[in-house]
C-alpha cells in the first residue's frame, strides 16, 4: 500500500465517522416518524394475519383456541362443497363453491370491465362534454358496493325491475324472471352489475393514461399514413399497456374481495342454496354465524390473502 493510498483510506475513515454521526440522528428521526404507522400496521394487519395463520392449525370452540390439529382445518375447508363443489362443477350446475364463483368473477368481470373501460375512455377522449360523461360513468364506482347490491335488486326485481320491464318491452317475455334468485343465472346477473360499476374505474384510469399520450404522436402517425385502427394498435395500445396491468390487477383484487354486492342480493347464505356465494361470504358466515367455525374462517380468509397479496405486491412495486 502506497503512502497516498494510506492517507486516502484515513480520509475515508474519517468521513465515515462523520457519516455515522449524522446517520444516527437520521435513524432516530426515521424511527420516530415510522413508529405510529408501523404500530397501526402491526395491530391491524400483521397481527391478525399471523394470528390467523397460527389459528388455522388449531381447533376452536367458538372463539377459544383449543388444541393443535395440524392441517385439519385446511383439509376440511378445501374439501367443503361450499368452497369448491367438484360434483356440481362437472355438471356445470350452481352452486359450484365460493372459490369457483370468485374465479368466475375474475374470468368474466375483469376482462369485460377492462375492455369496456378502455372503450369508453377512447370514446370519450375527443368528445365535447367528456368530463360530465366520465363523471357519470365513474359515479357508480363511488357508491358503496352494498348500495350497488341493493340497486341491482331493484333493477332485477321480477315485478318492478327495469331489466324485466325492458325484456317485456322488446317482446322477450319468456326471459322475465327473478334474476337474483334464479340459481343458474343469478351469478351472471350480479357479475353484469359488477362490470357496470367497475367499468367506471377502469375508464378513469384509461382516460388519464390516454390524456398523458402526447397528441403529436397521434398526429405524427396520421401523417405517417396510419388509419384509425393502426393508430390504436401501434401507438395508443402499447402506451396504455402499463395501465392495463393496473386495471386488471385492481379488478382481480376487487372481485376476490367481493362481499357487499353478493350479501345485498343473497344475504349471508350467498343466494338460494349458496348459488353465488363468494369467499368473503364464507369467511363471514364461518366466523359470525352459527355454527361458528373459526378455524375455517381463518383458512378461507388466508386463501383470499394468498391470491390477492402477490397481486397487490406486484402493483406496489410497479414503476
Amino acid at each position: 500500500m502506497s503512502l497516498r493510498d494510506h492517507i486516502d483510506s484515513l480520509t475515508v475513515d474519517r468521513d465515515r465517522d462523520v457519516d455515522t454521526g449524522v446517520d444516527r440522528e437520521k435513524a432516530v428521526a426515521i424511527a420516530v416518524f415510522l413508529i405510529p404507522g408501523l404500530t397501526l400496521f402491526g395491530i391491524f394487519s400483521v397481527g391478525p394475519i399471523v394470528y390467523s395463520a397460527i389459528g388455522s392449525f388449531y381447533a376452536w370452540d367458538t372463539f377459544t383456541m383449543e388444541n393443535f390439529v395440524g392441517l385439519d382445518n385446511w383439509v376440511r375447508s378445501l374439501t367443503d362443497p361450499l368452497i369448491v363443489h367438484w360434483a356440481n362443477m362437472q355438471e356445470l350446475r350452481y352452486p359450484m363453491g365460493a372459490l369457483t364463483h370468485n374465479l368466475l368473477w375474475v374470468v368474466l368481470h375483469v376482462p369485460a370491465s377492462t375492455f369496456f373501460g378502455l372503450a369508453l375512455a377512447l370514446l370519450f377522449a375527443d368528445l365535447k362534454g367528456r368530463r360530465i360523461l366520465r363523471s357519470m360513468v365513474f359515479a357508480g364506482f363511488t357508491v358503496p358496493p352494498i348500495v350497488i347490491g341493493l340497486v341491482l335488486m331493484f333493477i332485477y326485481d321480477p315485478q318492478a325491475g327495469i331489466f324485466n320491464e325492458l325484456l317485456r318491452v322488446v317482446g322477450q317475455e319468456q326471459w322475465v324472471r327473478n334474476w337474483t334468485q334464479s340459481p343458474q343465472v343469478a351469478i351472471y346477473a350480479l357479475i353484469a352489475g359488477g362490470i357496470w360499476v367497475h367499468t367506471g374505474f377502469s375508464m378513469l384510469l384509461y382516460s388519464s393514461a390516454l390524456s398523458a399520450i402526447d397528441p403529436s404522436l397521434i398526429e405524427s402517425a396520421k401523417v405517417d399514413g396510419a388509419n384509425a385502427w393502426q393508430r390504436f394498435w401501434d401507438i395508443v395500445w402499447p402506451l396504455v399497456k402499463p395501465v392495463t396491468a393496473v386495471v386488471v390487477i385492481m379488478g382481480i383484487i376487487w372481485v376476490m374481495r367481493m362481499f357487499d354486492i353478493v350479501y345485498a342480493a343473497g344475504g349471508a347464505a350467498g343466494g338460494p342454496n349458496h348459488a353465488y356465494s363468494v369467499l368473503g361470504i364464507e369467511v363471514y358466515r364461518a366466523a359470525f354465524r352459527p355454527e361458528i367455525d373459526y378455524g375455517m374462517a381463518m383458512v378461507v380468509a388466508l386463501i383470499q390473502l394468498f391470491i390477492v397479496a402477490p397481486l397487490a405486491l406486484y402493483i406496489a412495486r410497479m414503476n
Partner: peptide
Amino acid sequence: RSPSDRNVAMVFQNYALYPH
C-alpha cells in the same frame, strides 16, 4: 383530404418519436 392522402411528411417540434 386526410394527411395520409396528401403524401406529406412532417417533423414535429418535439420530434414525436414513438417511445415504445
